[in-house]
Computed example of a mutant assay.
Amino acid sequence: MATLRERKNYRDAIMKALYQATEGNRLLGITGTKLRDDLRVPEQDLAAACAYLVGEGLIAVDWERGNTPAMVTLTHQGLRLMEREEQERGLDDSG
């Protein structure tokens, strides 16, 4: 089982990967398999992190059998959070 720090890191990594891969488009998503492989997150920890983020209203997940994320997408709230973080880091060129 992952430590608290690892769980937080997994959740942050999932949000960043989704935001980058979908370029802020809520209609696009990433498969759970791609997230697991790209982020090197154990399957059980990926499922737990996704369940947490769903509970927070930040992502939506289509689940496969065995609580495996099939497709993961940002919600409107998740997209707004990531855009706000991007602006705070000063990465927004629009001013």
Rank of each mutant, 00 (worst) to 15 (best):
L46T: 01
G95I: 00
R40Q: 11
L46I: 04
S94N: 05
E6V: 13
G24K: 11
D38W: 10
P69S: 05
E83V: 00
S94W: 06
A17M: 06
R80L: 13
A17I: 00
M15T: 02
H76E: 14
M71I: 09
Q77F: 09
D45A: 15
R40M: 08
L81V: 07
A13Y: 00
G29V: 04
A49C: 04
A60H: 09
A48K: 11
E23G: 05
L4Y: 15
A13H: 01
R26T: 15
R84P: 00
L46C: 09
A48C: 08
L74V: 07
R36Y: 03
V41Y: 06
N67K: 10
R40L: 09
Q87S: 08
E86F: 07
R36C: 10
V54M: 12
L81S: 07
G66P: 03
I59Y: 05
W63N: 06
A48F: 06
E86A: 06
G57V: 09
A70Q: 12
S94R: 09
E56I: 01
M71Q: 09
P42L: 02
R40G: 00
G90C: 03
E88S: 06
L91P: 03
T33G: 09
D12P: 01
R84S: 08
G57H: 12
M71W: 12
L27C: 05
L74N: 08
L81A: 11
I59D: 04
M15E: 07
R5C: 07
L81G: 05
A60L: 12
L4S: 15
A17K: 14
Y10E: 09
G78W: 04
K8N: 13
E64K: 10
A47V: 01
D38G: 02
T33Q: 13
N9M: 15
E85H: 09
G55K: 03
D38K: 11
R5L: 15
Q44K: 12
E83T: 00
Y10Q: 12
E86Q: 07
A70Y: 10
G95S: 05
